[in-house]
Simulated scan of single mutants.
Amino acid sequence: MPSASPAPTPGYALVTGASSGIGERIAREYARRGVPLVLTARRAHRLHALAEELRAQVAVEVVAADLADPAAPAGLVEELDRRGVRIRILVNNAGYGMPGRYRSSDWADHAAFMQVMTTAVCELTWRLLPAIRADGRGRILNVASFAALMPAADGQTLYAPAKSFLLKFSEALALENADRGVHVTALCPGFTYSEFHDITGTRGRMRVSPGMWLQAEDVARAGIDGNERGQVLVVPGWRYRVLHAIVKLLPHRVAMGMMARNSRRVRPV
């Protein structure tokens, strides 16, 4: 009697920026759903601690990488190929903020920021897209921001443009890959409890209504659920969905004026 062929290796979810915040919560949510994981970020010790915890639920691979290094995306994919890990789900979550006006930071810092926020996202997606398309149930979840849906603020000059790029990138990918069953989603959360504002040193200056803050685990769940439903845009939190609807109805001049009045109140520069 011929021996049964081995079962195919299940497709993994690769989560960038998985060491904290929304990325960590996305990893936890996928583990809860039984999806094996590849975790990547700069802080290897945090990744290994999270991996040890999640291995009670699913298989977990750790590949530490700094996506500010232009060689990192290719190196990451090469390492996955070496380990025989097949990616079915790509979560482009890695990112950070640079507070202050445009000329307050060196160009090298801006270049590294754009490498992480846009270029690395594009390259990882390009390199992994053939496997994601071939799976038949491939998924791409790009963690953008509610900032992509609003006029840009005074300060953190490149943040909103980078997140707007992710939104348009997601829309184009969704159209291009729908014929292969690939769902592509831009997740656009508003203010979320995470390390984001601690790292930028702006938490103590934030003056935001408590009702506008989101929990990272709720954002993660909304993003994954929306992606599975085939939503191209996911805006977590009913208050943000209402605000988005209002802003779309406003003349651009009025919306810009509103942002000018609120930029320093929400994010002093």
Rank of each mutant, 00 (worst) to 15 (best):
G181L: 00
F191G: 04
D198Q: 08
A172Y: 03
S164M: 14
G223L: 01
H197A: 12
H183A: 09
A152K: 06
L173N: 01
P189R: 10
L166V: 06
P189Q: 04
E176L: 09
R207H: 11
M150L: 12
Y193A: 13
K163T: 08
S194M: 02
F196Y: 09
L173R: 02
I199D: 07
V184T: 03
V208S: 00
S209Q: 11
D179C: 13
E176A: 13
F169C: 09
G155Q: 08
D179P: 14
R221D: 04
F165W: 13
V208F: 00
R205G: 09
D179G: 14
A174L: 08
K168C: 13
R207W: 09
E171A: 13
D218N: 14
L173A: 03
D154A: 15
Y159P: 04
A178C: 07
R221Q: 12
G190T: 06
R203W: 02
S170R: 04
F169H: 11
T185F: 03
A162F: 03
W213G: 03
M206I: 11
R205M: 11
R203V: 04
K168G: 15
L158E: 09
P151N: 06
E195Y: 07
K168T: 14
E171I: 10
S170C: 05
P189C: 06
T157H: 10
E217T: 15
L167G: 10
H183V: 08
F191L: 06
H183E: 01
P189F: 07
L166W: 10
F196W: 05
P151Q: 05
